[in-house]
């Protein structure tokens, strides 16, 4: 149990997926402009990441049976793409309100490298099923946290006076550097 908590804290705060692992930067910069869209994207990622690791775990064991672990990248990305597609259809059919708030973000997640990254990390670190699930959950929550925090920063950024050449993307990246700096404070907690 203690180990699981440590994995959760490690994945969400210390090795934050966006701010120290640099995964999912495109989604991070693309959807953190408004608080609402950042929450939606974050929750969609948590959802997909959790279930994707639930599915990729047996897939990797199957690959091990036929001695083909090297196919993990191909197999995982297929599983994730398939899962995203199925999840989108299922949510649309059965839980329309959830689809309205998360649906638009789901197709974008297949190419979010954080999801594939989390699945591969689970395998590389030889996590058990429970550890994998907790790691994915932590990674997703860390992603959401970074997105929501950064959305707040960007709202302030819009009203501030920035040099002409730094306007737009450069200022956003420099702001991300400062947010990332603050996350370095978590190093060494566990």
């Amino acid at each position: 149990m203690k180990e699981l908590v440590m994995i959760l804290i490690g994945a969400s705060l210390i090795n934050n997926v966006v701010l120290s692992q640099f995964m999912g930067i495109c989604a991070f910069l693309g959807t953190s402009k408004q608080l609402k869209s950042s929450v939606g994207m974050g929750l969609a990622v948590v959802f997909v990441m959790f279930f994707a690791s639930l599915v990729t775990y047996p897939v990797y064991i199957l690959l091990g049976r036929i001695d083909a672990q090297y196919l993990k990248t191909v197999a995982f990305i297929l599983v994730i793409a398939l899962f995203v597609q199925l999840a989108e259809m299922a949510i649309k059919r059965f839980i329309p309100p959830l689809y309205k708030s998360l649906g638009v973000y789901l197709p974008l997640i297949t190419t979010n490298c954080a999801v594939l990254g989390a699945a591969i990390t689970n395998v590389d670190k030889k996590y058990t099923l429970a550890q994998s699930l907790v790691n994915s959950l932590g990674t997703g929550l860390g992603f959401t946290l970074a997105l929501v925090l950064f959305a707040g920063v960007r709202i302030r950024l819009e009203t501030s006076d920035i040099p002409e050449t730094f306007k737009g993307v450069p200022a956003t990246l420099v702001a991300a550097a400062i947010v990332s700096l603050s996350f370095m404070g978590f190093a060494g907690i566990v």
């Binding site: 200022a171 420099v174 991300a176 550097a177």
Partner: peptide
């Protein structure tokens, strides 16, 4: 990690300055 964001931001700003193009919003 923080240095990565910072360096990329500054490089893009420099590229914008040299190219004198309107930075993408």
């Amino acid at each position: 990690p923080a240095g990565g964001f910072f360096t990329l931001g500054v490089i893009i700003a420099v590229v914008n300055k040299i190219a004198k193009r309107k930075p993408p919003a």
